[in-house]
Design a protein around this nucleic acid. Structure first.
Length: 403
DNA sequence: TCTGGGGTCCTAGGACCC
DNA sequence: TCTGGGGTCCTAGGACCC
C-alpha cells in the first residue's frame, strides 16, 4: 500500500493570520487574546508561551509579548480557503478543526502526480494565495501522517516512506502519539518508556494494566503503525455544549440562573438551527478550588427548547449546591446536551401545551436573530462578561459543525 | 501551571432485564 | 435463602484533542 494520506496543518494559525494582516508583527512574539492566550506565534512559543495560559503568566515568560485582539472572521475565512485548496485535489477530505485536515489522494495521483508532489503543491498554493505557512505530513496511515506533519513544523513537509515507517516512528517521543497526553506520558515515564519504540516493546498485558484495556490496545497498535482509521468526510455530532468561566461568584440563584439561561440559549439556538435535539442534559459546576462536579439526566423524549434546557440545568445545579453546602463560590458553569438525534417531525404529534408554546417562542427568537443579529434579542450576558470570559466570536470558531 | 471553550471517547459501578 | 451469566442503559469522572 502506498503512502497516500496527507495531514495538512496550518502553523500557529491565529497568530500567523495576525502577522499576515499586520506586517509590523512579523518576526515578533505575539499572542492572540488578553486575559487568556488563545494562540501564540512561534516567536512567543520559544519563550514557553502556550495557548490556554493566562495573559499574566505569558507576560512573565515573555515581557516583550505583544497582545492582539483576534480577527475571528478572518480565521474562519482563511481556514476555509486553506481546506478548500486541499479539496481541490481530492473529495476525500476530513476536516478536524478550523486549521487542520486529513486527505486521501489515492484516487487522484494520475491527475496531479504522486502524493509528495500534491503536498508540495498544496503548501505552495497556501503560501502564495493566502500568505500562510502550512505543514504537511504524508504517510500510509492517518496516525503517521499526523505525526509527520508535527515533525515537519514549522512550515515543512515530511513524507514517510512505507518501507521505513517503524524506523521513523520508533525514535520519536511517545508524547507525539495521538492519545498520549500529560497523564499517560507520566505513567509511561514511570516504567522508563519515553519513545514510541520503547512503547512498542512493552508486552500488551502490562500496557493494558497500566493504561486500561482500550487505551493500551490502541497505543500498542499505533506503535506498530497499525491504524485502521479511514478518512471520514462526514462526522456526526454526538453532543453540543457551552460553558462559561465566572471568575469567582457566589453560589446563588441570582448568579447561576441568568448564566444558565445564557448557556441554554446558545446551545438551543445551535440545536434548533440543525433540527437536532438531545435526550441527556448534563451540567458541570466548578467550585472555587477548581474541583468540578457533573450531574446529568436522561429523558425518553429529546429536548431542544431553550427554557426547558435552562430549567433542567438549573434543577441539576441546585441539587449539586444542596449537596455541597459548604461551597459558597462557583468558578464555572457548563451545560452539555447529548444523545443527539435529528428531529423528523418536531411538534406534530405533541399535544398542545406549554412546550409547544415554548418551542414557538424559541423559533421566533431564532428568526429575529437571523434578521437583526444575535445581540438584538435574548438573555443578557449578565455575569458572563467578567474576567475570564472570551469573545463570542471565538466560541463560534470552536463550535464543531453540527451535521 | 492553577487554565478558556468547543468537543470525543473510555471506565467503573449500579440498575434492570432475561 | 442463596446463587449464575450476559447484555444494555445510565451516571460520574477523567484523559485527551484542537
Amino acid at each position: 500500500m502506498d503512502a497516500t494520506i496527507l495531514h495538512a496543518d496550518l502553523d500557529a494559525f491565529y497568530a500567523s493570520v495576525e502577522q499576515l494582516l499586520a506586517p509590523a508583527l512579523r518576526g515578533k512574539p505575539i499572542a492572540v487574546g488578553g486575559g487568556v492566550v488563545l494562540a501564540a506565534s512561534y516567536e512567543a512559543k520559544a519563550f514557553g508561551v502556550q495557548s490556554g495560559m493566562s495573559g499574566r503568566n505569558a507576560r512573565q515568560l515573555c515581557p516583550q509579548l505583544i497582545f492582539v485582539s483576534g480577527h475571528f472572521n478572518e480565521y474562519q475565512r482563511l481556514g476555509d480557503e486553506a481546506i478548500q485548496i486541499v479539496s481541490d485535489y481530492t473529495p476525500l477530505v476530513e476536516r478536524i478543526s478550523i486549521d487542520e485536515a486529513f486527505a486521501d489522494v489515492a484516487g487522484c495521483t494520475h491527475l496531479f502526480g504522486p502524493p509528495a508532489e500534491i503536498a508540495r503543491t498544496i503548501r505552495r498554493r497556501v503560501r502564495t494565495e493566502l500568505g500562510l505557512p502550512i505543514s504537511v505530513g504524508v504517510a500510509r496511515t492517518k496516525h503517521l501522517a499526523k505525526i509527520a506533519s508535527q515533525v515537519a513544523k514549522p512550515d515543512g513537509l515530511v513524507v514517510v516512506d512505507p518501507v521505513s515507517e517503524l524506523d521513523f516512528l520508533h525514535d520519536l517521543p511517545v508524547g507525539l502519539m495521538w492519545g498520549v497526553g500529560p497523564v499517560t506520558q507520566a505513567r509511561l515515564a514511570e516504567v522508563e518508556v519515553r519513545t514510541i519504540g520503547q512503547l512498542a516493546q512493552m508486552p500488551g498485558q502490562s500496557l493494558e494494566r497500566l493504561l486500561g484495556s482500550a487505551a493500551g490496545e490502541k497505543l500498542a497498535a499505533l506503535s506498530w503503525n497499525r491504524d485502521p482509521r479511514e478518512i471520514k468526510t462526514q462526522r456526526r455530532a454526538r453532543s453540543a455544549g457551552a460553558q462559561a468561566a465566572l471568575g469567582l461568584e457566589p453560589a446563588e440563584q441570582r448568579i447561576y440562573r441568568p448564566a444558565l439561561r445564557h448557556l441554554a440559549d446558545r446551545i438551543g439556538t445551535r440545536l434548533r438551527a440543525r433540527s437536532l435535539s438531545g435526550r441527556t442534559v448534563s451540567i458541570r459546576v466548578r467550585f472555587a478550588n477548581l474541583r468540578a462536579v457533573t450531574r446529568s439526566v436522561t429523558f425518553d423524549t429529546p429536548i431542544a427548547t431553550t427554557i426547558v434546557l435552562a430549567e433542567i440545568a438549573e434543577g441539576l445545579v441546585r441539587a449539586v449546591l444542596a449537596q455541597y453546602p459548604r461551597e459558597r463560590k462557583i468558578s464555572l458553569l457548563a451545560i452539555q446536551v447529548s444523545h443527539l438525534a435529528k428531529d423528523e417531525s418536531v411538534q406534530l404529534d405533541l399535544p398542545l401545551g406549554s412546550s409547544v408554546m415554548r418551542g414557538a417562542a424559541d423559533r421566533a427568537v431564532d428568526t429575529i436573530r437571523e434578521r437583526f443579529g444575535r445581540e438584538s434579542i435574548g438573555y443578557g450576558s449578565v455575569v458572563l462578561n467578567s474576567r475570564g470570559s472570551v469573545p463570542d466570536a471565538f466560541r463560534e470558531l470552536a463550535e464543531q459543525e453540527l451535521p
